[in-house]
Structure formats: C-alpha cells, structure tokens
C-alpha cells in the first residue's frame, strides 16, 4: 500500500504539472494572435482547422518540428535570411518562446507517389509534428493520370493521419498560361477533392497567386504572365499563409478567415 505522504506528494506534483500546463496554454492563447496575411496575397481558400498533434507538441516541449517536402522548399518556407526561412521567422515572432525546427527535404521534380514514400521514411526518422507537402505541380507537368495522382496523395494523407502527424497540403502554382491546361486544372481539382474528402488543410496556392498576379499587373501595367517576380511574391504569400494556418491550427481559435488589410504583420 502506498504511503499517504507519498500519495499526497504525488497529488501535489500532478496538480502542479496540471496547473503549469494550463497556465502555459492559457498564457499562450492570451498572447497569440495569428499573423496576418498581406491583402495582395488574395484568398487561398484555407478553412481553419485544428492541428492537434502540433498543439500537443507546443504544450509539451515549446517546440514544433516541421517537415517540408515536395517540389520547391522555397515555395512553402519562403525566402531565407541568415539561415532561417520566412516561415520560421514569422512563427517564432508570433508565438513567444516557440522553437521551430524545420526539416527541409524538398527534392525537386519528385512526383506524389515517390514523395509519399519519402514522407513515410522521413516521418519514421524525424517524427515531425507537421508535414508541409507541396504537391501537384510536378505531377501535372509530368502528365500523371488524375486517378493515379489522387490515389497516391490519398494514401499518404491517410497514412499520416494514422500516424498522428498533422498535414498541410500546399497546392499547385499559378500561371495564366496554365488556366486553359485541362490536365493541370484536373490535377488541381483532384488535390482539392482529396483535401475535402480527407478533411485536411489545403492552401490554395493557385487561387492566392491568381489574385496576386492581378494585383501586380494592375500596379505595374505589365502583362502578369511575363512577370517572373510573381513567383517570388508568391513565396512570401505562401509562407505568410502557412504561418497563419499553423498558428490558428495550434491554438484552434480562428479569429477570421481570408486576408487582412495589414500586410505581413
């Protein structure tokens, strides 16, 4: 039988841990307002959803591990400065005391099927809390049949859910010349279907960049499709959107959807 003194010490210790966790969570909730997204970035059609595994990681160790995988790491992490990409900088600025570890495994040219295999290996090796998966553009360029693409993505999404890893899908890129490309649009719609069916976050990169292109075009008078600066501006937008999505997902208290009036603050 347990000694009553030990029991009371145990209870006191458990209470202290509980109170600490609760206060950390409360303090965090009170402090954190999701970072805004520049108005120019348009609406990426993100539906705020909780990221329960990342929230638990934050509470337990004040640290989240993000695995970035897919075609272009710059596209999801944002441009780097002093060794840390924009996404990391926004997140660490927004959530006080948060340590963000980004594991970048963006090998370009890879199709969804191969990336899915690599995601499984990287999850086994690194145990990330969130996977940022930029997917679709390569498959569309490589003319992968839509049903094969959908099956590959769905299989990986389900595997990640089974293994308690949060997932944010980052969709296809935008270019005016691709608006009439039937296969490109079919892959885009397919990714959207998977996100809805599997109830996972998808950031509509295409939609966001389309708005951005119009904004840039109206500002400069240049034909948007010739403006290669769009790509770089798109990187900034994606990093902002992802940072906002992660923050909202972790604290599960969505203030509002869509872009704000204040750029990037």
């Amino acid at each position: 039988m347990a000694n009553p003194m030990h029991r009371s010490r145990l209870l006191a210790a458990l209470l202290a841990i509980g109170l600490t966790l609760a206060s950390v969570a409360a303090a965090a909730e009170a402090e954190v307002a999701p970072p805004a997204v520049s108005k120019e970035c348009g609406d990426a059609g993100v539906t705020d959803r909780p990221l329960p595994n990342s929230a638990a990681a934050l509470q337990q160790r004040k640290r989240i591990k993000i695995l970035a995988i897919g075609a272009s790491s710059t596209a999801v992490l944002g441009p780097g400065r002093n060794g840390s990409p924009l996404l990391e900088r926004i997140l660490e600025k927004t959530i006080k005391g948060l340590d963000v570890e980004i594991i970048n495994r963006g090998f370009s040219g890879e199709l969804a099927e191969a990336a899915g295999e690599r995601i499984r290996i990287e999850v086994a090796l690194n145990q990330p809390d969130i996977v940022l998966w930029q997917v679709g553009t390569n498959d569309a360029f490589a003319q992968v049949p839509v049903d094969e693409f959908e099956a590959s993505v769905s299989s990986t999404v389900r595997w990640l859910k089974e293994h308690n890893v949060d997932l944010i899908l980052v969709g296809l890129q935008y270019a005016k010349s691709l608006a009439k490309d039937a296969h490109y649009q079919a892959i885009r719609m397919s990714l959207r279907r998977v996100a809805v069916a599997e109830n996972v976050l998808r950031i509509g990169r295409y939609e966001s960049m389309e708005v951005l292109a119009r904004t840039m075009s109206s500002g400069t008078g240049q034909p948007e499709v010739e403006d290669f600066g769009l790509t770089e501006a798109g990187y900034n937008c994606m990093a902002q959107y992802i940072a906002r999505t992660i923050t909202v997902g972790i604290f599960a208290k969505p203030p509002k959807t869509g872009p704000s009036a204040e750029p990037g603050k």
Binding site: A71, S72, T74, G106, S108, G109, F141, S177, V225, T231
Partner: peptide, 19 residues
C-alpha cells in the same frame, strides 16, 4: 517561351533564379 514561370521552380532551379 511558354509564359509559364512555374517551370522555373522545377528541379530545385528556383533557388538559382531567386538567389
């Protein structure tokens, strides 16, 4: 030639064109 900037992102080339 195809007015398709996303091609610049292919095969890890994005970093070259951005930085």
């Amino acid at each position: 030639l195809t007015d398709t900037p996303p091609i610049l992102d292919w095969h890890n080339a994005a970093a070259f064109f951005q930085d």
